[in-house]
Design a protein around this nucleic acid. Structure first.
Lengths: 155, 155
DNA sequence: GTTTATACGTGATAGTATAACATCGCAAGA
DNA sequence: TCTTGCGATGTTATACTATCACGTATAAAC
């Protein structure tokens, strides 16, 4: 996944299918709200904020109070279908439907697109600093803000 | 700076002195509110949230409304005396009073101490992904959450 | 001294997130 | 079948984070 165009319907269908499989295997409930929120996140390569999601759920009669959205997002994040983008206080569908990983994000401040790269939690300066300090890493946040190729050219 | 004990009064005095020098050189106003907020941040190796800072300012008669705290924090962050920790929505004094740099943080989820390491914005998986994608990095967020040596042993 | 730019005071409001408790529905076990 | 327990949802309220807008004060520049 990069900043290039592609047939986006596949992203949605594949993402939903993967989540269905995963939940079926583990006897998890892939409920209507959870499915719908994942569809929304898969629907674009920009992140969505919790209240944008809530507004859409409300419009569809799937829930009207903040906890509805946050619970669905918690579920999706916990099981790796979505990630939280700390820098934006927002959420985005996972691009690597496979296993657990430490996501890294490139965030375009002009067009708001976000692309995900994988990273090793123990790698880089964080890993080095942790080993030096005797620190046990459980989770990492790696996000870069800047300009995507399209917006950099336009600038 | 690491998770080890040290004489902490020096941290505060040195940090304030450096900020004074920097501001004097550039004709910036190191006002009472700004100084006091920096002292608070230097006063511990945990991060402080904006409203904790605001509460203390209020108690000292230095301002009672959110913008007072946020303006001071904006100033300190802009000039590199403090950093924002995205993962915590909080702020911490800069440990490297020197020049501009891309901070990386190790955040202990048990004792809330935070230590800062330096990093190269273009390094690591973010840098690689950016070069591959043609993405121009302007700012990076690198934060690891986990257990510091003390808390890892205690666990 | 006047001008100008910067900082501060203040009230209002926007945006993000969780606590707490009630209800519902389904599935495992008596 | 019953009931018991668990996970999910509904709902109210509230906590926490951040900014806007506008007026005033202060200090440096001219």
């Amino acid at each position: 996944m990069s900043f290039h165009a592609h047939d986006h319907r596949d992203c949605i269908a594949d993402g939903i299918a993967a989540a269905e499989r995963y939940c079926a295997e583990r006897r998890l409930h892939f409920t209507p709200v959870r499915r719908r929120v994942l569809e929304m996140l898969l629907g674009g390569h920009t992140s969505l904020r919790a209240y944008e999601i809530l507004d859409r759920l409300r419009a569809e009669g799937l829930g009207s109070q903040p906890p509805v959205a946050y619970r669905a997002l918690d579920f999706l994040v916990m099981h790796g279908f979505a990630h939280r983008v700390e820098r934006l206080n927002a959420f985005i569908a996972c691009s690597h439907a496979d296993s657990r990983h430490a996501p890294a994000f490139l965030i375009c401040r002009a067009c708001n697109r976000v692309v995900e790269a994988e990273s090793d939690p123990q790698a880089g300066e964080l890993g080095r600093a942790a080993r030096r300090a005797g620190f046990v890493i459980e989770r990492t946040v790696r996000e870069a803000e800047g300009l995507c190729p399209d917006c950099a050219c336009a600038a």
